[in-house]
Design a protein around this nucleic acid. Structure first.
Lengths: 212, 212, 212, 212
DNA sequence: CATGAATGAGGTTTCATTCAT
DNA sequence: TATGAATGAAACCTCATTCAT
């Protein structure tokens, strides 16, 4: 699986006129619409342009190719989710460990669920677009935020093993992905959210105990 | 993501003759080779046939279309992994809970890692092919096996909440996927395996406690 | 002007079935037809395929891209002309110098004029297709043939300066190109042919005198 | 080769203001730059405008379309070369025939070589742009100048056959083109220049003898 | 006058699939 | 049964040109 060259994805030009900004926004939105209604492999640049009410040419003024477009959309989505997690971490400082973890986990779950449809649609896309790199960056940012929060928890003396946090995140992501892909009801989601909190709490407790 | 019709994927004919079985095997192997060397989106039926040393026409004698081929390959892979987990569950009966979980988790990790390259390559494929259904079936089988094992553990009186086991599996899968996609070293994999055991042990303990 | 990579032009596959040979021939012929009727920059692969009575896909089975097709056509044309010159050289052995030159020059002129339309059409094409390399190879072959012939001329003791023959060829080509592009009448062509002979005879005589 | 309508190529407006003249000059220069760095088929109006530091819109204020631009650039180049030849002819009046021819030929060669890169780049362009007409006009002007010079040569009583001069020019052009396209070293160019003088001297001598 | 965003026809190329041999 | 030539819809992307600002 030859990794796509990331440099090829940079936006072609930055809009200077007001009109252009609107256009880019419309293209973004249209991409998601098409993704949701037709799925990743029936998404074509022409269709996106149509839905956005612009011509293909216009689309290509801002994105050098299809991948760049999808990459940008994916990145924006990840940015939103990561932002939420960071915010939750900031809010949770100095609270007891269990509560802290609950809040962070719930923030993540809620962020994902809020635009569940988009999340699901983007899973399909990420693979063909070098999404791994974006995911990695996001995880690193989240990790940093979580570590910083953990350090302020009253029960925590020393940080856990450096893999522990990443692993926790991967576990959460995996569970959410699984839940989203099997299209669980909202009742189910509530249950999963509950359990995910439990999972993280018990794992963190264990990991911290071990790290003495 | 309009789910592909599953009925369309069934193999066109069952290889009754020895020659046919060989051919199908060759096609399977070739598919994986191409997947690994060229990636999912440069995989074409012609290329697979070439690599397998048969003509495209022959390929289409055994698989009604490209999706069916990929679906079959994916299914076979999942079958292998699931089989391993089931075997581990059978082996672990009556052992103490912690040990039981260790063995099951390690079986899963090892099965995935054994053909890590294939696992990774197939992630890309699963999405376009209705892999979700296969995954679901696999998880259900594993769940059943795990439950059956758990019932024999000395410490366990009552089974945990019915979501707990699925969630544990989803967590494990998620972590493994993340590890594979970021191409971790074997040292890292060992560390992750360790932690994954810890995660599952602590989570199961917590979930069982709760279910009283 | 970044020279096109020549390796990219090699035919994609050699026809093994009889049907295929016909197809390739039809594509060649169609290319020339389109070139003549619409010109180089309105030549599209689709149009060529249509004219050839096959689908575009078929065209691409034999030529990896448009350039490869044009390159092949150009090469075939040069091959024909060069062949004629070589034959003329072989025929002219041992004849007096003036006559020898007359025959070679006339062979070249006649070969070009015989398919004057194609020659003209291909000038446009050669540039975009790395034709320079083909031209060079042709010239080298012709040079060798001419040298070999000259050595048998009774008046010639030593060969002329090594640039002389190439230069003579370039002069002939240039004159023919000019004549073809300005679409001279056949009367004019006859006149030009006559003068070209004179030019070459006098130049060769001078060059040989000098080389003592 | 359907000849483009020449009337469509005339510049849209004559630059009367100083600013405009600068702009046009910049566009000319940019065209050549792009031609040299990217080649004829990656030359786009937008790219030229960018390189020239103006907007596409501005470019279209001075040239009604792409062809007109290229035509103008080509014409300017030919104008320079032709001018040089005319000057050489004027200088050479009354000198002995051999010397006269030497000077004219050398002027032509030197003019071409001075901007060898441009010459080469423009060969590619001329074809798509109706350059034949420009070439023809240039040749006619040169012919006139050469004839006028010849009449003053002491050895010349009557002018040569009316094709002779055109043919000589075509020969020179052909040789230079060939030399430029094969990218000869400067040593080689000197040799070619030498030989070209010889070729023209001997041909003219022969042609004049004949015309009695 | 200059700008540059928008247009969209049209070009090249791919590839899953069929079917005559 | 196996073959592989042929198909052709459909995807991606470019670029000359226009026109509102």
């Amino acid at each position: 699986m030859p990794a796509p060259t990331l440099t090829a994805f940079e936006p072609r030009k930055t809009p200077v006129q007001a009109r252009a900004a609107t256009t880019v926004e419309a293209i973004f939105e249209a991409t998601i619409q098409v993704l949701l209604s037709l799925g990743a492999d029936r998404l074509t640049t022409t269709r996106v342009a149509d839905r956005a009410g612009v011509s293909v040419g216009t689309l290509y003024q801002y994105f050098p190719n299809k991948q760049a477009l999808l990459y940008a959309v994916f990145e924006a989505h990840m940015e939103k989710v990561t932002g939420r997690v960071e915010a939750a971490c900031a809010d949770a400082r100095r609270k007891p460990l269990a509560e802290m973890i609950r809040e962070v986990v719930e923030a993540f779950v809620d962020a994902k669920m809020e635009r569940a449809d988009i999340s699901t649609a983007l899973y399909h896309v990420a693979a063909d677009v070098g999404g791994a790199a974006v995911v990695k960056r996001s995880m690193q940012r989240s990790s940093k935020a979580i570590e910083a929060a953990l350090e302020t928890a009253p029960e925590v003396n020393s940080l856990p093993d450096k893999y522990a946090i990443d692993l926790m995140q991967a576990a959460i992501s995996g569970v959410m992905r699984s839940a989203l892909e099997s299209g669980g009801s909202s009742a189910m989601v509530r249950k999963i959210r509950e359990h995910l909190v439990l999972l993280c709490q018990s794992y963190m407790a264990a990991a911290l105990t071990r790290s003495h």
